[in-house]
Every structure is written in structure tokens, then in C-alpha cells.
Design a protein around this nucleic acid. Structure first.
Lengths: 179, 179
DNA sequence: GTCTATAATCCGATAGAC
DNA sequence: GTCTATCGGATTATAGAC
């Protein structure tokens, strides 16, 4: 059910998808869905929360890694992880406004935890003198926006391989924060 | 009507907003709206098209400008223009999937015209030897994603002025494509 | 645990009075 | 040009049979 809901939400948007459509995609009647979710809202919330928890769980932080290496690892990880889950990423950015305030706050907190990992790398690089970043918080948001933007155009059948894309973006990231 | 529709679409999403809600915000009954739009779809399309046309009309291209100056002008223009129209920008990115295929194609073409302006600047800079960009098309998409991302966090009451934000982003853009 | 049926409400769009 | 009323259908969520 969650897989079909994710697919439909990504394609048409949360508000535009009915419980009947989800049920039809699963192969049951609408009433049966309510054995697996209390309502449509918590179905959306569960998708967003598990996506953010997957993201945090997949990151391997190595505190003793040199800032430049840590930044390259983060860059490549971010691109790869997000390109492998285009539907979940799409929903996680588009449907935030359809969360209740309580649920929104939880998702925003998880997102903040992820952003803090990049910000910490930038701070360490500045302290070490290998990065020049006038405002690490804004640089964090700017770089993540740039990297996540890959999802809007990348197609696996396209002219560039995943590794080529990672390398092109790493080139820009590296230079953007270089001392 | 268009102003209220834009506000409501940005807040709740196209599919979640009813013609009755728009009418109520305007101060008329739902039937009266159909004297100003043929249907809900073309109301959305008109908002997106006029936003893109405003964007293209506001750009002043100066062909003989040095690539570095042209890039700075583009960067500052993009940030300022988009921060002044957060609702239109939001809708233009979120509601593309609610356009009919014909309407979608028109909007995508306008967006392509805008992206081409940045790509041309990058090409000229590479030819002049002042930029090092392995793939100008991808660099264009990456930089625009980074710059547009300002809209997700900037608040005019926040700790940074518009000019400070422009300068921070210009620093990253300049270095990201530097030779 | 899935079904059918239904409650209560809302939707986009139109018709016709004024 | 705005109103009221309405058509035909959609919605979420629940109740109760099996």
C-alpha cells in the first residue's frame, strides 16, 4: 500500500490522489486500506518520516576524515541516495505543506539533522583552513539545493552515467567552498 | 482573482483549492469566477505563463558584457527576482504536473529560454578562458537550483539582508565555475 | 481482514433570473 | 456581471456482514 501510495502521490500529488485510487492500485477496496493506516494524512507522514530516517541511517559519518574527503563523500552519497529514490524525494519536498503542524515539525527536525552533518564538515574545513565559506549555514543550504536538483533532470538512460554526474557536481562543490 | 488564486495555490496546492475557496477570498460566489476564466486549469496555466514571461521580460541581456560580469549580474538578478515572487516561484515548480501536456510544453519552453541565457554566459566564459566548466548544461541546472533554493529559507526579517545573500551566493557561484 | 453500503460533504461547471 | 440553484459525480471515513 505504501509503495503504491508513494508512486501515486509523486505522480499526481497528495491532494489529487484518492483512497479509492490507492486501493485500486493495490487491488482491494477502499475500506480495506483503513486496516493499515488510520487516515490519509498519516499515510503521507509515514512515507516522509521513513524516507528521512532511511537517509540518516544510510549516512556513515567518519569524524576523523579530512574535511575535503568528507565533503566528497557527502556529495557523492547525497546524489546517489537521492537519485535512487526519486519518488520519495519528490514527495518529501512537495507535500510538506500537507502535513499537520506536529508532523511537519518532526520532518523538519530530521531534515535539520541531515543538514547539520554537511554544516559540520564545512565548519571543520574552515577551521582547518582548507575551505573558505563566508556563511556555513547558507552554504549548506545552497549546496544541498544544488545537489538535490539533480533529481529534476537526471535520467538513467541519458548521456551521463551516475559516476560522471557525481564527478561533475563534486567539481563544482569542491571549488565553491575552496580556500 | 488571479492574486487570490496564486496565494491559495501556493499555500494549499492546486488540487486542494476549490473554486469556491477562491471565490470566497475574492468576495464573490463561485459562478462569477467563470466570467474571468474558462476553467480552473487555465487559471493555473495563466499564472505560470505570466510568471515565466515576466521573468524573461525582466532580464536585460548585454551581449558585450564580460563573462564574469554577466554571471554576477545573472546571479544577483535571479536571487532578487525570485525572492520578490515567492508564491509564483513556488507554484511554478510544484504544479507543473497539474498542467495539461500542451500547457506543460509551453512552460517548459519558456523555462528553457531562461536557462539558455545562463548557459550562454558559461559557454562564453569557457571560450574566454575565465571559466572552467566540464559540462555547461549541467552547471546551468546546478547553479539555478542552488540560487532558486534561496526561496526555501530566506525571510526578509532574518539576520541577512538581500544584498548580503546575493553576495554570499555570488561568492559560491564565482568560485564554482572559476578556471 | 476484506467486502458492500452508506453517511455527510464537497467538487467543477453550468443555467437562468435579474 | 453577479447571483442562486443545481447537475452529476467525486471525496474521506465508517458500519456491519461474512
Amino acid at each position: 500500500m505504501r509503495a503504491e501510495a508513494q508512486r501515486l502521490f509523486a505522480q499526481h500529488g497528495f491532494a489529487a490522489v484518492s483512497m479509492r485510487q490507492i486501493a485500486s492500485a493495490v487491488g482491494v477496496q477502499a475500506g480495506a486500506l483503513y486496516n493499515y493506516t488510520t487516515d490519509k494524512q498519516s499515510l503521507l507522514f509515514d512515507l516522509l518520516r521513513s524516507h528521512m530516517e532511511d537517509l540518516l541511517a544510510a549516512r556513515e559519518t567518519v569524524p576523523e576524515m579530512a574535511p575535503l574527503d568528507a565533503l566528497e563523500q557527502f556529495t557523492r552519497f547525497h546524489i546517489r541516495f537521492h537519485l535512487e529514490r526519486t519518488e520519495a524525494v519528490f514527495i518529501s519536498y512537495m507535500e510538506l505543506r500537507n502535513l499537520t503542524p506536529d508532523n511537519f515539525e518532526i520532518i523538519e527536525d530530521l531534515r535539520g539533522q541531515y543538514e547539520d552533518q554537511l554544516e559540520t564538515i564545512l565548519h571543520r574545513g574552515v577551521e582547518a583552513g582548507v575551505f573558505s565559506v563566508p556563511d556555513p549555514k547558507i552554504a549548506t543550504l545552497g549546496l544541498i539545493a544544488m545537489l538535490t536538483g539533480v533529481n529534476t533532470w537526471y535520467r538513467s538512460k541519458g548521456r551521463l552515467s551516475l559516476d560522471q554526474v557525481e564527478t561533475i557536481y563534486w567539481d563544482m562543490v569542491r571549488k565553491a567552498v575552496a580556500a
